[in-house]
Design a protein around this nucleic acid. Structure first.
Lengths: 372, 372
DNA sequence: ACATCTTGTGGTAGCGCTACCATGATGAGG
DNA sequence: CCTCATCATGGTAGCGCTACCACAAGATGT
């Protein structure tokens, strides 16, 4: 015993060696406590937004935090706090341009909050049910689901049913049981259609997305409504079914361009199909945009890597994903404290990006139209 | 003194409260030590690959680790180890399909090793020098540089000069001063050219990539060598300059297709330019692949999202990036121990992916050739 | 022969934080 | 006036790991 105590004392005297390696030792919770004239515990409470702290004290602590530019050490926090928050990003068929934005957003927020991110592909899983079950057992707290998984109510229910937290990113429609971050697909499609109409077009073709994704229907409805509001009739022949793939876009575009009189603009439900439409138009010796305007949706990489670059709708995917991570973190914390708040649905702003695939209808077209 | 000991004992008795929340308490280093009949310290040494451990002891520890399925707690590690390893991914003009693979690889490895990843764009920085300087001051230990940054010897020297660790991913040529993970660009281009020759083609056009990237030259050389080795002459008219962009690929393809006799195959230095070539060919009413074979390089998203899907060269970007992260982690550790090992260069295998943009030269083409 | 390295190992403190109790101080109820 | 809750705060012990020494045992130098 005596021996033990002696060495202890020795250790105390040495101490503080590693911290001094860096010139600017990062402030710790103790530094803040000293500055705010209270105990580290109180600081911890303030930082973690717990109750039972006098308003005055809270102010002092926050003041000290600001002054010292303190930020909590994540490693220490998760070490002391028991388990680490783990979030899985589940993919079904990742479009890589979507994915990279998605990952950037998640990554940024996750590293900021010291959350362990896991990337999980569903592609070769026997069934989503067993996969999700195993993951929750394995300690995953939250799931982030991009399209098309975000529309799969079965998966969503599975997760929440098993005690997990699910956030859908970009679903067509918000579900009541889980959180979601999304844009107003209907309104975005409406705006794009309206934009094309404003350019002077009247025969505007539309290529529908994969019918299994809820967003496809909403985009179609937006197009329909804008056309009708402008007093333009929506001929069935001007609406072609696609699947969100390039290939399906080619087929749909061929169908639309065979219609007589030809549409002077085509609005595809995503960029891949819009790119395919451009390719088909070119093969028919139609110039884009002088002969035909082509617009897309999503603003993926495809939109500005082809030529002409596509006018399209941009979603703030990065911000949306970051928000999703934040939401899970918050929910997990409140859940751990016993509360059970309802799901949050956050709507993000979209943006109509004008590029070089759009123009007013050409005179030549008008002439041809008159001829017919 | 006695008091201290008493409370300690009390603490011990209570202990293990949080751990028990999860049914399967994760094994700690102490558990392993007990199993291996040695001290936690020795276990730590074995796990971190330090020297001064008897071979026999090491075996025992590893055995125990395996048996208990132990994996070190990252939070504890970084808390105890002083500073956290921080790695920056620097981008200049990220092609998103490349990026997503890149991020996935880095992310996986980083979360596995509890490394803090930071994504840093150079696009709107005043100068790379000041940016890098600030980042190293800010505590970034390692930098991962994808193309085109990986070829910028200035940036590389800047980082190593300031005491940082730089790993180039996919540079054209390995630099002596820093680590690199790469594929054999020359050999890959050689193989692809050889592959096209084996299909029966003789007039094979080539589109060069951005001349500022070293890889462009190596790919060109691979093409040249394969042509010459096959006894085919490389006409200057069959080689067009591109910039790695879709747009530049269109211009180059137009130039190549104007050559008489027309090439029966075009090998573009990346997929974007290959996609552009397909588009131009279609506009000229050439079918791909029956009239003309088009091959790309990189196997980005573009390669299999257009139609026909491109035959291309696939780099294991994900594995390469993961390796880069590992290399930095290892270097940082040895550096911290005072050693200064030389830079490591790892060559990864590439793969020639055959898709539907390739075929033997058509008879029609042969006829036309005979006519001339 | 003894001083001085080297090697393999163990002991302990403490990284920065939070969970859990203990403690005063206040107010409510008997 | 004395309980007994309720609040605001402090004290302390770890979370799991590594840095740093201590130390025994053998190898080496003079």
């Amino acid at each position: 015993m005596h021996l033990t105590m002696d060495t202890t004392t020795q250790g105390r005297k040495q101490g503080r060696k590693r911290g001094s390696r860096r010139g600017n030792a990062a402030p710790t919770i103790a530094d803040v406590a000293r500055e705010a004239r209270c105990s580290p515990m109180t600081v911890s409470r303030v930082i973690n937004g717990e109750g039972n702290v006098r308003e005055e004290t809270r102010e002092q602590v926050l003041e000290a935090v600001r002054k010292l530019n303190y930020s909590p050490n994540r490693a220490a926090r998760s070490l002391a706090g028991g388990e680490q928050l783990r979030i899985a990003l589940m993919f079904d068929n990742p479009s890589s341009s979507y994915l990279s934005e998605f990952l950037m957003g998640a990554l940024e927020e996750a590293t900021r909050s010291d959350i362990h991110l896991e990337v999980q592909s569903c592609e070769n899983a026997p069934s989503n049910a067993t996969l999700v079950g195993k993951m929750i057992e394995g300690g995953i707290t939250g799931f982030i689901l991009p399209p098309p998984l975000c529309d799969d109510q079965g998966v969503l229910d599975l997760i929440t049913g098993a005690g997990g937290i699910a956030i859908a990113v970009g679903p067509g429609k918000a579900s009541g049981s889980n959180g979601a971050v999304m844009i107003d697909e209907y309104q975005a499609a409406y705006d794009m259609t309206r934009h094309i109409i404003n350019l002077g077009h009247e025969r505007i073709g539309f290529i529908i997305g994969n019918p299994e994704q809820v967003a496809s229907g909403r985009r179609l409805n937006g197009y329909r409504a804008a056309m009708e509001d402008a007093g333009l009739t929506v001929s069935d022949r001007l609406v072609a079914q696609g699947q969100f793939t390039y290939r399906s876009g080619m087929v749909a575009a061929e169908k639309l361009l065979a219609v007589d009189p030809q549409p002077t603009a085509i609005f595809a439900s995503n960029d891949d199909m819009a790119a395919a439409t451009v390719a088909v138009a070119h093969r028919c010796h139609l110039d884009v945009p002088s002969d035909i305007t082509v617009c897309g949706f999503d603003d993926t990489d495809m939109a500005n890597s082809i030529w002409p670059e596509l006018t399209t709708i941009r979603q703030p995917i990065r911000e949306m994903t970051a928000k999703a991570v934040k939401m899970i973190a918050k929910l997990a914390r409140t859940q751990r404290h016993g509360d059970k708040p309802g799901p949050e649905h956050v709507m993000f702003p979209y943006e109509l990006i004008r590029r070089s695939s759009e123009a007013g209808p050409s005179l030549a077209k008008f002439d041809r139209q008159v001829d017919t």
